[in-house]
Design a binder for these strands. Structure first.
Lengths: 121, 121
DNA sequence: CGCCAATATATCGGAATACGATATATCTGT
DNA sequence: ACAGATATATCGTATTCCGATATATTGGCG
């Protein structure tokens, strides 16, 4: 019912924002939300399994960064950030996804009734 | 990997062909395949659970037809066909899906890199 | 007349996945 | 000192895809 965001879409948008520059997970989610006017949300339960899949299949490479602030407490390790970078393979996949997406859109359009202002609900 | 046809899409295309005229399951699948140039396939494993969901949620109504041929054998019951007809609720849902789909397309486009002839793969 | 492909409906079960909830820890502004 | 944002991650339930399988009927063709 709730317009589930499918794998293809979440993969596409993640790869898409990573095509511009390396980002860490949380930043990816923020970027996607911002660019979609808050309409596409990569929640943690979607985002992190997705990134794990992307990494495992070699579409992105990842490196850890640890940031320590001035006010860091004695025992603290600092904040961990995992940076993701699009690989060559990922770039190809993105292009592929983009084409598939456009193809899919053309396909679906053949089934769409003429645009009409939705009446009631 | 295999470009899963998601619920939204299969529901949309099924409702879409039913908007024109009542059809039985097998005919729906054929119609969808034909209109998509054989690219969208509603296989039995997808089609019948989908129709059951549509019926249960009141988007379509269904009636059985039994066709007996001239050459029918003694014991045979004749071929059973279950005709599906779009309900008013289904018509609303179709309009809703169509708008959501267009909205989704606009959203995704913001993430698509410029169209490029996919190199290798 | 007998065979087979096409027609027609349906279920099963494994695998994938969406996503809310939960957990843990750190940083920043006030 | 505290709240709220930042940041990563997993769990469990529900959903769903879809290949395979099952069953039965019909039409065409040699």
């Amino acid at each position: 019912m709730t317009t589930r965001i499918d794998t293809t879409t979440s993969e596409l948008v993640a790869l898409s924002v990573l095509a511009e520059e390396p980002l860490y997970g949380y930043a990816i989610a923020k970027r996607v939300a911002a660019r979609s006017d808050e309409r596409l949300r990569l929640t943690p339960g979607v985002l992190y399994p997705l990134l794990k899949r992307l990494e495992k299949s070699g579409l992105v490479t990842a490196t850890w960064e640890t940031v320590r602030s001035d006010r860091a407490e004695e025992g603290s390790e600092g904040r961990r950030r995992k940076w993701y970078r699009l690989s060559a393979k990922g770039r190809k996949r993105l292009a592929h996804h983009a084409n598939a997406q456009r193809e899919h859109q053309r396909l679906i359009e053949a089934f769409l009734p003429p645009e009409e202002p939705e009446a009631g609900a």
